[in-house]
C-alpha cells in the first residue's frame, strides 16, 4: 500500500512545529500503524533525516502509552483500540493520513508526536489509590461485593490513562479519565472510606491543571480504547455533590 503522511514535526517543547509531508510506499496491509511509522523512520534514517518521535511501549493495546490523533480521531478510525492495534488495512491505498499529537494545554508537546501526560499522574497522586497496608493475599470472600458493583468497578478500572478522552473532547476535558478512576474505587468497599476526599482532591487537581469543562458531547466515550462509559461522569458528579453537601 502507498500513503501520503502529513505529520506534525516539532523539535522540542519551545520550538514552533509544522506539518511535514512524506510519501511511503510498500506498506503491508497487515502491519500496524506504529510499524508503518517504524518503516517511515527507517527510510528517514537511511537519508540521514531525523526520525519521527512517537510514544509506544507494549504494542499489545494494554499499556496506554501510544497516542496519535489520526485523521481527526484519537487512535485512528477504529473503535475500542489503541493506535498500536490499528492496522493499515483499515485505510485505503493512496490515502492521505494527517497525524497530530494530542492537543491540550495540560498535555504539552515534548517532541514531534510525543506529549507530556504527567498531568494524569498528578491527578492520580491526589487520590487514585486506597490507603491500606498490603499484606498476604486476602480470602476472596472476606469482603462481600455485589456482582453488579464489581462489574462496574472492573469496567471503570480498564482505563489505561492514554488521554484519548482529552484528545477527543472539543474542550480538552479530563472528566472521563477522572470519573473512571473515581468510579472504580468508589464502587468498592475498600475505596469507599476515602471517597469524599478522593473526589474532592482529584477534581481540584484536574481543574488546577487546566483541563476544560465537560459539555457532555460524548466524544470521549466514542473514542476511549477501553470503551469507558460516560455514566461514570454522572457518577463522578454525584460523588462530588455528596462530598460537598453530604
Amino acid at each position: 500500500m502507498k500513503f501520503k503522511l502529513k505529520i506534525w514535526r516539532q523539535e522540542n517543547a519551545q520550538a514552533k512545529g509544522k506539518f511535514v509531508t512524506y510519501e511511503l510506499d510498500n506498506v503491508s496491509d497487515d502491519c500496524s500503524f506504529l510499524e508503518m511509522l517504524d518503516q517511515l523512520n527507517e527510510t528517514l534514517v537511511d537519508k540521514f533525516d531525523k526520525p519521527v518521535c512517537f510514544d509506544h511501549d507494549c504494542r499489545e493495546g494494554i499499556c496506554g502509552m501510544c497516542s496519535l490523533y489520526i485523521n481527526g480521531r484519537p487512535h485512528g478510525n477504529d473503535s475500542g483500540i489503541t493506535t498500536c492495534q490499528l492496522h493499515m488495512r483499515r485505510f485505503k491505498d493512496g490515502d492521505t493520513l494527517v497525524v497530530e499529537p494530542w492537543r491540550a494545554k495540560a498535555f504539552p508537546v515534548i517532541k514531534d508526536l510525543v506529549v507530556d501526560r504527567t498531568a494524569f499522574d498528578k491527578i492520580i497522586q491526589e487520590g487514585g489509590y486506597v490507603s491500606v497496608n498490603t499484606g498476604g493475599i486476602p480470602d476472596a470472600n472476606a469482603i462481600p461485593i455485589k456482582k453488579v458493583d464489581s462489574d462496574l468497578a472492573m469496567d471503570a478500572a480498564q482505563c489505561i490513562g492514554c488521554g484519548a478522552c482529552v484528545a477527543a473532547c472539543k474542550n480538552a476535558s479530563a472528566m472521563l479519565f477522572v470519573s473512571a478512576k473515581v468510579s472504580h474505587l468508589a464502587l468498592l468497599p475498600q475505596g469507599s472510606l476515602e471517597a469524599k476526599e478522593r473526589v474532592d482532591n482529584m477534581v481540584s487537581k484536574m481543574d488546577e491543571l487546566g483541563f476544560g469543562y465537560c459539555s457532555n458531547t460524548g466524544a470521549c466515550e466514542a473514542e476511549c480504547p477501553k470503551e469507558i462509559k460516560i455514566s461514570n461522569i454522572a457518577r463522578l458528579n454525584r460523588e462530588f455533590f455528596v462530598s460537598k453537601l453530604g
Binding site: K6, W8, F19, Y69, N71, G72, R73, P74, N77, V98, E100, R103, A104, K105, A106, A168, K170, N171, A172, S173, G210, F211, G212, Y213, S215, N216, T217, G218, A219, A222, E223
Partner: peptide, 23 residues
C-alpha cells in the same frame, strides 16, 4: 475556559461520533 484548554487546535478536527447539536 474550554478554548484556553486547547491553545493549538487540530488540523483535522473532530471526526469523533458525538451528539451533533452538542458541538
Amino acid at each position: 475556559k474550554n478554548r484556553i484548554s486547547r491553545p493549538i487546535s487540530y488540523n483535522k478536527t473532530y471526526a469523533s461520533q458525538t451528539s451533533y447539536f452538542s458541538k
